[in-house]
């Protein structure tokens, strides 16, 4: 992409974000909102700079938790998605179970995981995994299950094995679905790890926010929220760029 087009593409979202912060700032000033209720963004950003050194290790911890959970979700989601995408029997058998698991509020599992694994990184990783697993599995399954029957016939009449069918058609065809789900999953994974850190960790942004709010340091809570949001955007953008590279054929 030429720098020029990049600039043109980056401008509208940047402007929207700037406008959002401006409205927030001005709204708080106009209605004279108490900093304890809703700090202005400038105050939250000031809190960020004040607590920078404390925020970064926590942010990296949350990022780590999220990526491990997401990595597990990618591995398990692709595998389960491929299985239920290929086998109508497995699909019928497993789908209700998957939906049931996905319907459980993940926050409700946090105390259970604490009982099982104690307070620490593991519950947060598991929550991030559980929350991001479902969209990946469903999308990969869709990509594979919707292969045109004629295409399957063409390959079968060449003596193709199931593995050939997966490698030549199923997998490449599922990739756009996979990337679409990744962009959803990565933001969900952040939600999962932060929610878990709120109650079940002694590290991470979530934990930092709990400590800050117990000290009534609301600007620091908001600084934490903004950092999480920024990390979410960064990972989303990274996957979006990867997607453009790998499945360029799906965009035209």
């Amino acid at each position: 992409m030429k720098p020029n087009t990049l600039l043109r593409r980056a401008f509208p979202p940047a402007a929207a974000i700037a406008l959002f912060f401006l409205a927030w700032e001005l709204g708080c000033l106009a209605f004279n909102v108490d900093e304890f209720i809703l700090p202005r963004p400038s105050v939250a950003i000031a809190a960020y700079f004040q607590w920078q050194e404390a925020i970064w290790p926590n942010a990296l911890q949350t990022l780590f938790t999220t990526l491990v959970g997401l990595g597990l979700a990618i591995a398990a989601g692709t595998l389960i998605g491929a299985l239920i995408g290929y086998s109508a029997l497995l699909y019928d058998a497993l789908y209700p179970l998957l939906v049931a698991f996905n319907s459980i509020p993940k926050a409700a599992l946090v105390p259970v995981f604490v009982i099982w694994f104690g307070v620490g990184t593991l519950p947060a990783v598991l929550i991030a995994f559980l929350i991001s697993f479902f969209p990946i599995a469903v999308n990969v399954a869709t990509g594979i299950a919707t292969v045109e029957p004629e295409l399957r016939d063409v390959l079968r009449s060449l003596g193709a094995s199931k593995l050939d069918l997966f490698a030549k058609v199923g997998f490449p065809r599922a990739l756009p679905y996979f990337f679409a789900s990744l962009k959803v999953a990565v933001t969900l994974a952040f939600v999962g790890s932060v929610v878990a850190e709120l109650g079940a960790s002694n590290r991470g942004i979530g934990n930092m926010m709990v400590i800050a709010s117990s000290r009534f340091d609301v600007p620091l809570v908001f600084a934490g929220l903004i950092v999480v949001a920024l990390m979410g955007i960064a990972l989303y953008a990274a996957f979006a760029i990867l997607e453009r590279r790998v499945v360029a054929w799906a965009y035209r």
């Binding site: 004629e150 016939d153 063409v154 079968r156 009449s157 003596g159 490449p172 065809r173 799906a250």
Partner: peptide
């Protein structure tokens, strides 16, 4: 399934991520 047959249908069923040449090479 036979291995010495070629098939073509009403719908060309080409793989969209492959060029024309790569599609022809698939078999």
């Amino acid at each position: 399934p036979q291995k010495n047959v070629g098939m073509a249908f009403q719908n060309p069923t080409l793989l969209p991520w492959r060029s024309a040449l790569e599609n022809v090479l698939l078999p």
